[in-house]
């Protein structure tokens, strides 16, 4: 039930930074024209894009009393960890961490296994129904998740899945699948078939060749793809909100939003909590960027 929109957004663009991330592109020598104005524009973009994140950090470390005043300085004047303390000590934080960790880990592993099998079939074989399958993989991503919320809820309920980790895991795994298949397929078809063929000549079976030859080569692809499923699973709100009614089974996003619906939002600890939830995601995003770049330069993944 992770929103197809976000998944798609992350996925499609996901490999794009590969070409771009940090100056792998040479500066164009012909641009002698004042780059100053472009730099200025760049700084403006930087400020606009970074300010909300900056303000989140500053507010997270700011004492409660200063947060509630009209004299908040743009620069951090005093630091405190009280926002983080109250976030961590608030009810159900640790149980939510546990739920999110369990659900995310299992989902990512399961989704990658399933997706690899399917992607391998699609990328390496031509079989009847292949094209419709590809189209289905695209189309299901366009369904508004909301349209399926109630029936999914009823189905899970009938199967005794309410408040159960596996309910979220199953739905998240499957919703990660179309993108993962699509993306992995892109990596698989870019690995020269000859490599496998020579392995098969050396006595490997079809699947043996896949595991020994293709699998290591698409490592970066798997890393990237898994981060996108990870991010989506980690962030999903709506299904978790409906299925996990037991406070002790909340996921982190549900826990985060419960802080705002309670009496009087404490923005200091809300921002601290936001930092805690966003941090792993941002770190993974940064890591995957590198992997993608190295994958690209090593030539394992190319056009």
């Amino acid at each position: 039930m992770s929103s197809p929109a976000t998944t798609l957004r992350r996925l499609t663009g996901g490999s794009a930074p590969a070409t771009t991330p940090d100056g792998t592109q040479t500066l164009r020598p012909d641009r002698k024209k004042p780059t100053r104005w472009y730099n200025l524009g760049g700084l403006l973009v930087f400020v606009v894009m970074a300010f909300p994140v900056y303000w989140m950090l500053v507010s997270a470390f700011r004492p409660g009393r200063e947060i509630r005043s009209y004299d908040q300085t743009l620069w951090p004047s005093s630091f405190t960890l009280e926002g983080f303390q109250s976030a961590i000590n608030s009810n159900f934080f640790w149980t939510s961490v546990r739920t999110s960790l369990i659900v995310t880990t299992v989902t990512v592993v399961a989704a990658m296994l399933l997706a690899l099998l399917t992607a391998f079939a699609i990328g390496r074989f031509r079989f009847y129904g292949r094209k419709p399958l590809l189209i289905v993989l695209v189309l299901v991503q366009l369904l508004p998740p909301l349209a399926m919320l109630i029936p999914l809820y009823l189905q899970l309920n009938r199967m005794g899945g309410l408040n159960q980790y596996w309910a979220l895991i199953v739905v998240y795994t499957v919703s990660a699948l179309p993108f993962a298949v699509w993306m992995l397929r892109g990596f698989i078809i870019n690995i020269p078939r000859e490599l496998e063929e020579s392995a098969m000549v050396d006595g490997c079976t079809r699947m043996g060749a896949f595991w020994r030859v293709v699998f290591p080569l698409i490592g970066p692809g798997i890393a990237a793809t898994s981060v996108f499923s990870l991010v989506n699973t980690w962030n999903e709100y709506l299904l978790a909100y409906v299925v996990m009614q037991d406070n002790e089974r909340w996921t982190l996003p549900v826990w985060l939003m419960s802080m705002t619906t309670q009496r009087g939002t404490n923005f200091g600890s809300l921002m601290a909590a936001s930092v805690l939830i966003a941090l792993p995601v941002v770190i993974f995003f940064m890591i995957v960027q590198r992997k993608m770049a190295s994958g690209l330069t090593s030539g394992a993944v190319k056009g």
Partner: peptide, 20 residues
């Protein structure tokens, strides 16, 4: 700098971005 800012914004979970 711009790339770093873009990627960070990109990575923000919707629940977090909305809260912010």
């Amino acid at each position: 700098m711009v790339t770093a800012a873009l990627v960070t914004a990109w990575a923000m979970p919707i629940v977090v971005a909305t809260s912010v």
